[in-house]
């Protein structure tokens, strides 16, 4: 860990001001990921700007019937909020599938969107990593890549995004509210994270002098037919090998809308509008869901150790959609997969 400046932002404008012109500056809220990375010398910010006291901690109803979630709402506060539990249970479930109670108490919504990959090479400064140091090489492509990307990877980086919350937000078509020197803007959550391409060191489309102020949930919460299923190497407190967020709107047994986002398989939550469209009007059956899974995974590419994730993802997609269709969502408290 290196020495750094520390300042506390008075308001959002002040935070932006403190960021501007300081490329080495980082915002800190809960710090659950940033401080870990600083201890490992992966992140070496010259300045930390504490935003934890900014007034971004409320969950408010929007004019169109959605919710606006302040960027500093703790992950646990979001998961246990009555409105979230009733209207967006998928989001509550995904959050509770991640980390531990202690971490969820500290971690913020905005910070969750900014968390970085768990690729072991990214974490170890003694090994090359393009995400840590541009053009230094990717150690994972020909190395230990059992839990690396099967979709959307590049020859520069095959890391995955570790967030559970983002996967649910992607399925819910959430929006990210951003403030910067030139004002405010919104971005679809699905556009927020980037694919690695040739610049895997840049995780998101947030500019260096911008701050996330809120996440907006559109009115439709799919509270009747949803499920979040996370498959990992132990039954709790591990990052996903594959996770699936699925929501359905059904008319009888016919699908009028389906949205599925995958976690643990790519540099960002993975969706396919085309595959989802093809499910519309179909009956909610294993056969149709299997076809959907094949379509969603069409571009999947195996590396030396992660080939199993393709078949695992296929099966997990079918299971999750069946859970959603039968209104028996995966419990995050039971020691069992339904």
């Amino acid at each position: 860990m290196i020495n750094f400046q520390f300042s506390r932002a008075r308001d959002v404008a002040d935070a932006i001001l403190l960021l501007t012109g300081h490329p080495g500056a980082k915002l800190i809220a809960g710090g659950t990921n940033l401080i870990d990375l600083m201890k490992e010398n992966v992140e070496q910010p010259s300045r930390l700007i504490d935003i934890s006291r900014l007034p971004l901690r409320t969950i408010e109803e929007t004019a169109d019937g959605g919710l606006r979630v302040g960027a500093l709402v703790p992950n646990s506060g979001l998961a246990y909020d009555p409105l979230i539990e009733q209207r967006y249970p998928l989001l509550a479930s995904a959050i509770l599938a991640g980390a531990s109670a202690q971490l969820r108490n500290m971690a913020s919504v905005g910070g969750n969107l900014m968390q970085r990959t768990r690729c072991a090479y990214f974490y170890d400064t003694a090994t090359p990593c393009n995400k840590r140091t541009r053009s230094s090489g990717c150690s994972a492509i020909d190395g230990l890549n059992r839990n690396h990307a099967i979709l959307g990877a590049s020859n520069s980086c095959i890391a995955t995004n570790p967030s559970d919350m983002s996967v649910a937000l992607a399925a819910l078509d959430a929006l990210v509210h951003i403030a910067g020197p030139s004002g405010e803007r919104t971005m679809a959550l699905t556009d927020f994270h980037r694919l690695p391409g040739e610049t895997p060191d840049i995780d998101t489309n947030l500019e260096a002098d911008e701050i996330i102020t809120a996440v907006e949930l559109p009115p439709r919460g799919f509270a009747s037919n949803y499920s979040y299923l996370k498959i990992r190497d132990r039954l709790s407190y591990a990052f996903a090998l594959v996770s699936v967020a699925a929501v359905l709107e059904l008319e009888g047994n016919a699908i009028s809308e389906a949205r599925v986002a995958l976690g643990g398989v790519a540099h960002k939550p993975w969706r396919s509008a085309e595959a989802e469209m093809a499910l519309r009007g179909q009956a909610a059956t294993v056969e149709h869901f299997s076809r959907f899974a094949d379509s969603l995974l069409q571009e999947a590419k195996a590396r030396s150790h992660n080939g199993f994730k393709i078949e695992l993802a296929r099966r997990a997609i079918v299971r999750t959609l069946m859970q959603a269709a039968s209104a028996t969502p995966q419990s995050q408290a039971h020691k069992k997969i339904a």
């Binding site: 072991a120 709790s236 020691k335």
Partner: peptide
């Protein structure tokens, strides 16, 4: 271990898994 580097790559208890309560 990554034998190319002769280096342990999960030298922490996030990635070196032991049973948690759920297990």
């Amino acid at each position: 271990m990554d034998h190319r580097f002769g280096r342990i790559m999960n030298a922490n208890i996030a990635e070196y898994h032991i049973p948690v309560n759920a297990d």
